[in-house]
């Protein structure tokens, strides 16, 4: 069964093409169409933030976007930020400060934190908490996550990866 759409966009710096149906969400395109499984399904309602990706640099819930909306655009996921051997500075903060437990919210949380720092919405712990309120974590109680983002935000911009 041929897909109705032939979708092209940039994923983590590489041009990708993928067959998709018009009613597919970006989340489904990424996970089932391309195998980009670091993007997580958590609720399908845009509430939990587990499926967060950066779309042209803006954090969005990929479960709320339809496939045609991403044609020709730039998508970044957490796997594009860094690798175990060469982690992004924000990823390293999450690991070292107890920002990761079960890890299922982590990809979305890291991208949410990255955007918050890029938008300069991390001036205080309270501001960081508000900036991250679109990403639910059920394991940590958020302290390690907030501290990770704060530590990353305090780095000189040249060291932020």
């Amino acid at each position: 069964m041929a897909a109705e759409l032939e979708l092209g966009f940039e994923l983590n710096g590489t041009a990708v093409r993928c067959g998709a149906e018009p009613h597919w969400t970006l989340l489904r395109v990424l996970r089932d169409g391309i195998g980009q499984t670091d993007v997580k399904y958590g609720c399908g309602e845009g509430v939990c933030g587990a499926c967060t990706v950066l779309l042209d640099g803006t954090a969005v819930s990929s479960c709320l976007l339809f496939a045609p909306q991403v044609a020709g655009r730039r998508v970044e996921t957490v796997a594009g930020l860094g690798s175990p051997e060469e982690m992004h500075p924000l990823q390293r903060e999450f690991v070292e400060r107890g920002g990761v437990q079960c890890g299922f919210c982590t990809p979305g949380m890291v991208l949410g934190g990255l955007e918050a720092v890029a938008l300069d919405l991390c001036g205080s712990p309270e501001e960081i908490r508000h900036s991250l309120s679109g990403n639910i974590c059920r394991c940590t109680g958020y302290r390690g996550i907030v501290e990770s983002v704060a530590a990353y935000a305090s780095l000189p911009p040249t060291d932020r990866g």
Binding site: T37, V78, A79, S83, M87, V95, V100, G103
Partner: peptide, 21 residues
């Protein structure tokens, strides 16, 4: 100690139950 699983998780490498094809 840094948890070994945290490094895999934060880089999106961990294969959870729905992540294998």
């Amino acid at each position: 100690l840094v948890r070994h699983d945290a490094v895999e998780k934060v880089t999106g490498r961990t294969r959870y139950a729905a992540d294998v094809e």
